[in-house]
Design a protein around this nucleic acid. Structure first.
Lengths: 116, 116
DNA sequence: GGCGTTATAAACCGATCAGTTATATATCCG
DNA sequence: CGGATATATAACTGATCGGTTTATAACGCC
């Protein structure tokens, strides 16, 4: 059972190494060796990270001689950004608190009386 | 070793159940029973999800009688949104391709000659 | 064809995850 | 106090993760 795409993207972003790889790819395509260099992990480990990123749609791979360069596919970040954007409205804490408080009152979750 | 906060947030968002819990909490605070209801999973499982969300700073818990209501802390999403926002610039594929191509040329990654 | 380079695949390992059941804790009510 | 309700903790399980080492495959070059 493949995870839904949104989960795949968030899961891919949950690893610092993978985020660093994406950052690196904003400077242009790179092959596995170049990506592995700064991380003190073995090439196979990088290869696995790339597979995760590819499954999430965040990169695509090409072929150039022995090299399989990776290219960033930033468009795959859009659904994640959209999901988070729904919460922008709640970022302002005062609005948020007010909102929640009103909701709580409405649903009878709190007494609205001073505690003890 | 605690994971860095950004990883904690992305990891928390990587689970559909936890995302649904956050969505539910936009409608106001809720206790564990209310959160567990729509998901056909046991209360302890929900409790664990809430612990993950709390560790990521995405919710805070209160006390009201036997109930420990959860409140959304949307501000914790900000770093994640900011991280992703850095890639907005790359979402337009034509800009992205051009960018990457120029970078590739500059770093000598591709020949810039027609293949074969 | 054979060699070096680049990258993936396979097998394995310890840690963490997401869920369960069963047990404990905390709070209210009578 | 004792019982009911709401939640958390403990102990366990199967699956997945992030890494390793070893072996294998694809390509370019001589």
């Amino acid at each position: 059972m493949p995870p839904d795409p949104l989960s795949a993207v968030f899961a891919a972003l949950a690893d610092p190494t993978r985020r660093a790889i994406l950052v690196r790819l904003t400077q242009g395509a790179a092959n596995v060796g170049e990506l592995a260099a700064p991380f003190a992990i073995s090439p196979p480990a990088v290869s696995k990270h790339l597979k995760v990123l590819a499954r999430a749609g965040l990169i695509t791979r090409g072929r150039a001689a022995q090299s399989r360069p990776c290219r960033l596919e930033a468009a795959a970040l859009r659904p994640a950004a959209d999901w988070i954007a729904t919460y922008r409205r709640h970022w302002d804490e005062s609005l948020d608190r007010l909102d929640a408080h009103l909701q709580d009152l409405q649903s009878g979750m709190v007494s609205d009386e001073p505690a003890s």
